[in-house]
Simulated assay, not measured.
Amino acid sequence: MPERVFLVVAYDGAELLDIACVTSALDIANRIGADPPYRTVLATLGRRTVACDSGLRLESGAALERVNEPLDTVLVTGGLGHERAAANVHLVGHVRRLAPLARRVASVCTGSTVLAEAGLLTGRRATTHWLHAAALAERYPDVLVDAEPVWIRDGHVITSGGVTSALDLTLALIEEDNGPAVARGVALGTVAYLQRPSGQAQISMFLARRGTDDFVVRRATDHIAGHLTDDLTGSALAHRFGVSERHLSRLFRTYVQLTPARYVRRARTEAAAHLLTTTVLPLPAVARRCGFGSTESLRQGFLERFGVPPSTYRSQGSGTAAHGSGPVAR
């Protein structure tokens, strides 16, 4: 194979970062030894220049309707124009036509809407930007939408979450094609985390918790984040914040869709995930720092949250883990 043709499908209202994360990572891979090299082609209908969300314009490299060569990868970008793109029967038709010519098909962010409209996600697990996941699931009930992961692979079809998850997806594809050394080199070149495991949540709960409107829940979640090694049982939290345990549980179910106990376990697990990928602390030390009573409790938390044990999570995502400790929570 002289080259891997990587076709990026774009349209008006595409998100520039969705495109640049992919194309820049592939370019760096070529510079450090991707074999065979990637040939990245930006394709649009009629080879028209596209206006990105940001207002910048991108010149197309190929007319989508004229592409007939064998392809390594077809990737549909996301952006605010994804619904108009999915409503364009010509664009969707050509994506559907090109899919069998490619070894794999992918989307970034809301590009999954175009894949779904083309019937390429029917019966498959898929993800998209977390803000648009509910709409995708409602519009395409035959697609098994999961808003949590950074990216999902189901057979030869790969979908990724919002914006910068494009880099995580591309690093994973580069590693699949060329091995971990080249992928690690690309991550270093982009000063990126190598690489978030596919099952990692798009939005950390330490950020998401800020969205609640309830004062008690805000105080409780802030306390949990800063005191992971304390007694965080439901009764202890209820006593601290002057409510009954039953009322606290009701508030948590309403505002964060988790019981206090499950929220605490998830908070400790996410904090442990951060330590595993940013330090070389042994598992027992990570467990202690994050409030787990044992490494087995830590293991159960990871299996529940990420589907893999902590040792596997670390090996998947800690290629450049730093020595030392570091913060307990993001």
Rank of each mutant, 00 (worst) to 15 (best):
P180V: 15
R209F: 12
V328I: 15
R253F: 02
G326K: 00
R48N: 13
L207T: 06
E15P: 04
R250M: 06
P260W: 07
S60Q: 01
T295W: 11
L58K: 12
N30M: 09
A187V: 08
L194V: 02
Q202H: 03
A285M: 02
V76H: 13
S311H: 13
E245N: 09
A238C: 03
L248M: 02
C109N: 06
A20F: 15
V243M: 10
A14Y: 11
E65M: 12
S204Y: 01
T44A: 15
R250P: 12
L298H: 06
R268Q: 00
L144M: 08
A63I: 09
L275D: 04
A102Q: 07
G307R: 10
I28N: 06
R84D: 07
L136M: 14
V163S: 07
L101G: 15
T122L: 09
A85R: 10
R57Q: 03
V191T: 03
L207I: 03
P141M: 02
I32Q: 08
G119R: 01
S244I: 12
V74H: 08
E296F: 04
T113E: 02
E138I: 11
P70Y: 05
D213R: 15
L232E: 13
E138A: 03
E138S: 09
G155E: 15
V163W: 00
Y313F: 11
D154N: 04
P197A: 05
T229M: 07
R153L: 03
T164A: 07
A137N: 11
R314K: 09
D142Y: 04
A329L: 13
D168C: 09
I158T: 04
T40G: 09
D230F: 09
R103P: 11
